[in-house]
């Protein structure tokens, strides 16, 4: 973006990204061996096993790859108990750990043309569209706290962090989103 275009963007006044704190999201941490949990995950969420760093959705439910033996299952909170029961049933003979973590996290939506730039101000991650796209979950550092983000079906980012630092994360994100456009990313 040229100097002139950048100044125009500032003058228009509206922040290029918007941060919304989302209501509680049902979440389950599941640990186990991929070969052993795949069927249980399908039964609980309808989703197949995501690839390394992948996140997949089936309607309101989803599964994110967190580490080689850990997944984050997403669903409306009222479905958590049922999902846990399904997992327990499917995995009764497999060594695993499944536990609700809905209350442990806070979740945000970062939308708008400046969303990538907002995150790039506070996360040491290559956020260019060619490198980070829908279907991937990135666990990283949001300023000074751990966080993870992905791109939702609506094209906006979702970011989760620990509950105790929710206000910090929101303040950091809003601060980052309020910056004038940098003009670094092609669409930016």
């Amino acid at each position: 973006m040229s100097d002139a275009a950048r100044v125009t963007a500032v003058a228009s006044g509206a922040p290029a990204a918007q941060v919304d704190c989302l209501p509680i999201q049902g979440m389950i941490t599941l640990r186990g061996q991929p070969t052993e949990v795949a069927e249980a995950i399908r039964a609980a969420t309808g989703c197949g096993l995501p690839e390394q760093r992948g996140i997949v959705f089936e309607g309101e439910r989803g599964v994110a790859w967190m580490s080689p033996d850990e997944w984050l299952l997403l669903m409306p909170q009222e479905m958590v108990s049922e999902c846990l029961a399904t997992l327990a049933g499917e995995l009764s003979s497999s060594h695993h750990l499944a536990v609700e973590v809905s209350d442990a996290r806070a979740m945000f939506r970062i939308s708008g043309t400046g969303a990538r730039e907002a995150l790039a101000r506070v996360c040491p991650v290559d956020l260019s569209p060619a490198t980070f796209a829908a279907g991937e979950i990135r666990r990283t550092r949001l300023a000074q706290v751990p966080a993870a983000f992905w791109i939702g079906a609506d094209g906006a980012f979702r970011l989760v962090c620990f509950r105790s630092v929710a206000r910090y994360a929101q303040d950091v994100l809003e601060n980052a989103a309020s910056g004038a456009p940098v003009g670094f990313f092609p669409e930016g």
Partner: peptide, 16 residues
């Protein structure tokens, strides 16, 4: 310092 000043100088953890 970047954004790390004032209220967001460092993360403050809050209990429920």
């Amino acid at each position: 310092a970047g954004e790390a000043r004032g209220d967001i100088f460092q993360p403050l953890r809050r209990t429920p």
